[in-house]
Simulated assay, not measured.
Amino acid sequence: MGVLSRMSYVVRSKINAVLNRAEDPTETLDYSYEQMRDELQDVKQGIADLTTQKKRLEIQKRRLEENVEKHNQQARQAVKQDREDLARQALEKKKQKMNQIEDLEGQIAQLQNTQDNLVEKKNELQNRIEEFRTKKESMKARYEAAEANSRVSEAMTGVGDEMQDVGMAIERAEEKTEDMEARAEAMDELQDTGAFEDALSDKSSLDRELEEMRSSGEVDSELETLKADMGVEDEPEEEETSSSDDDIDLSDLEADVAAEETETETESETEQATEENNS
């Protein structure tokens, strides 16, 4: 096999494969049925044309027969008038018309045979078309049922193209959800360990601890100074105190301290939620 022959064979095979994939059996059956109906219509048209031609010949034959009768009467009349020459002419014309009638009868008979054959073929073709229509509808119903069954089976097994896309979408959604869950857990862990505060602050953990110790020492020193100014010992004896305008209600102080702590905790929680949203 030469190169060109091989190329031609490969091209034809590729085209045939493409056509097979693109072919819809139901459409092919409908098209074939329409083609057969067109052929039947052509046969009917041919029969009609043939019948018309035969009718024209029959009309021409009747006219010739009328002329034959006319020439026959002319010959009789000429004989009565002792015009043998006119009688001879009339008989000659009668003979010509009879010969033409004989030719027409042969053509008419031939057309009739052709018409009978066409009518027979038309009836046979019409019967075949009816049978094909029945088979076509049956095949279409079987194909549509098989196609529906195939789609349902593919959907149930998940091997269809659409179901494959759905499965991939579900996998991507699961992966993204797992990533978001892992990220949320990581943020919570970093928040609990104080990593966010370390990242947002310029001070190290040692600097913060030293600062807390220094602040606590300053508060203790100021408290000792306050006690010394007021003459209060470290372990004062319990004494009854009388209410007067100079006494201070410590409950108000405790309430203020508790309110400040609550406000501090609320601000801390708000900042933490903001950092999580930003991340």
Rank of each mutant, 00 (worst) to 15 (best):
G2C: 03
V3E: 07
L4Y: 03
S5K: 01
Y9D: 13
Y9S: 12
R12D: 07
R12I: 07
R12F: 05
S13I: 01
K14C: 02
N16Y: 02
N16S: 10
A22T: 00
E23Q: 12
P25R: 00
D30R: 12
E34R: 15
Q35H: 13
Q35P: 01
E39H: 08
Q41H: 07
D42S: 08
K44F: 04
G46A: 09
L50T: 07
Q53A: 09
E58L: 03
E58K: 05
R62P: 04
R63A: 09
E65F: 04
E66K: 11
K70L: 07
N72T: 13
R76Q: 15
V79M: 14
D82K: 13
D82H: 12
R83P: 06
D85F: 05
Q89R: 14
K95Y: 09
K97P: 00
K97C: 13
K97V: 03
N99S: 14
D103A: 08
E105R: 10
Q112S: 09
Q115H: 08
N123W: 01
E124F: 00
E124R: 01
E130N: 07
T134F: 02
A141S: 06
R151V: 01
E154K: 02
G160H: 02
D161H: 06
D161F: 05
D165E: 12
G167L: 09
M168E: 12
A169K: 13
A169M: 09
I170Y: 03
I170N: 06
T177R: 08
D179A: 14
A184P: 00
A186N: 15
M187H: 04
L190E: 08
T193L: 14
A199G: 10
L200V: 13
S204K: 03
S204H: 04
R208I: 03
E211G: 06
R214L: 01
S216T: 06
G231F: 01
V232Q: 06
D234E: 09
E237D: 13
E237F: 05
L250I: 13
E254N: 11
E260N: 13
E261C: 12
E267S: 09
T270C: 10
E271C: 08
E271G: 08
T274M: 12
T274Y: 15
E275A: 11
N278V: 14
